[in-house]
Amino acid sequence: MKIDREQWQMVIALLVVGVVCTLLLATTNIFTKAPIAQAERQALMNALMQVLPEHHNDPIGDTRDITMDGDKKPTRFYFSRDKDNTINTIAWQVTAPDGYNGSIHILMAVHPDGSINAIRITGHKETPGLGDGISKNQPWLDAFGDKSLNNTRWAVKKDGGDFDQFTGATITPRAVVKAVKKGLAMFTKIKSKLLKKAQQQTEAQHAMP
């Protein structure tokens, strides 16, 4: 088969368009990479500031990654420390896969004794006006404070638990409560390992000036 002149023109035209567009994209990527990382860091920082108590370290730089059984990706734990360097709160992100409309991402901050400091919703696609109360209804979020596995019935009131559901939306709060409970249970399991490693890490940091 011979390629005639017309066909060469098509090949060259598409090739040039493709190469120029790729170059444009690569250039944009170079220029936006740092600002994107900065924006994401800022968003995470803002969320962390809301769930963590007063601290004297940089929680974003004070982390530990642990891969749970059955998880593909590791979970990142952020440590918040007092002035004397003891850990007062640990924050990490959990995902409720069974929201009304896709996954709900939750940032939870827990004291070493297993009681919750605060939780925030960092991402969801729940129905505006109904399920999205999980991210807007401050009293509902505040109800998680000081709750731990032992002192609370981890279900919505409709299911005989301690947490309010919303009018017209039960699935969303139910998913959040379930995910936070699961997070607490996981924390109990890995607590000793996690805290030990975090302590070692600090000692290592102190050891190498």
Binding site: A13, T22, L24, T28, I36, A39, A43
Partner: peptide, 24 residues
């Protein structure tokens, strides 16, 4: 195909720029 490639490139550039400077 040429037009779609051009449009896709510009949209991706806009997307990256928004991600960087209008994150919310």
């Amino acid at each position: 195909p040429a037009y779609i490639t051009i449009i896709a490139a510009f949209v991706s550039i806009i997307e990256m720029a928004m991600n960087a400077w209008m994150h919310e």
